Amino acid sequence: MKPSITLAVTAKAAKLKAAGVDVISFGAGEPDFDTPVHIKAAVHAALDQPGIGKYTDVTGILPLRKAIAAELSAVHHVAIEPDQVLVSTGAKHSLYNLFMALLDPGDEVLIPAPYWVSYPDMVMLAGGRPVILETRAEDDFAVTAAQVREACGPRTRAIVLNNPSNPTGAVYARKQVEALAEVAVEKDLLVFSDDIYRQLVYGDAAYHSIAAIGPDIARRTILVDGASKTYAMTGWRIGYTAAPLPLIKAMTKIQGQSTSNPSHISQVAALAALTGPQDCVAEMRRAFNERRLTMVKLLRAIPGVACREPKGAFYAFPDVSAYLGKKSPEGHILDDDVKLCDWLVEVGKVAVVPGSGFGAPGFVRLSYACSMQDIEVGVGRLGKALAQLS
Rank of each mutant, 00 (worst) to 15 (best):
Leu110Asn: 05
Ile111Asn: 08
Pro112Tyr: 03
Pro114Gly: 05
Tyr115Gly: 03
Val117Leu: 03
Met122Ala: 06
Val123Arg: 05
Met124Val: 13
Met124Trp: 03
Met124Gly: 11
Leu125Met: 13
Gly127Ala: 13
Gly127Asn: 07
Gly128Asp: 07
Leu133Thr: 05
Glu134His: 13
Thr135Gly: 02
Asp139Ile: 04
Ala145Thr: 12
Val148Cys: 13
Val148Leu: 10
Arg149Ala: 15
Ala151Lys: 12
Cys152Asp: 06
Gly153Met: 03
Arg157Ala: 13
Val160Cys: 11
Leu161Phe: 01
Asn162Ser: 09
Pro167Asp: 12
Pro167Tyr: 02
Gly169Val: 11
Ala170Leu: 00
Tyr172Met: 11
Ala173Tyr: 07
Arg174Phe: 12
Lys175Ile: 06
Val177Phe: 01
Glu178Cys: 07
Glu178Tyr: 02
Ala179Asn: 07
Ala181Lys: 10
Ala181His: 12
Glu186Thr: 04
Lys187His: 14
Leu190Ile: 14
Asp195Pro: 00
Gln199Val: 10
Gln199Ile: 04
Val201Ser: 05
Tyr202Phe: 15
Gly203Leu: 09
Ser209Leu: 05
Ala212His: 01
Pro215Gln: 09
Ile217Asp: 08
Ala218Ser: 10
Asp225Gly: 02
Ala227Pro: 01
Ala227Arg: 00
Lys229Ala: 15
Tyr231Lys: 00
Ala232Cys: 05
Ala232Tyr: 10
Thr234Leu: 07
Gly235Asp: 10
Trp236Leu: 01
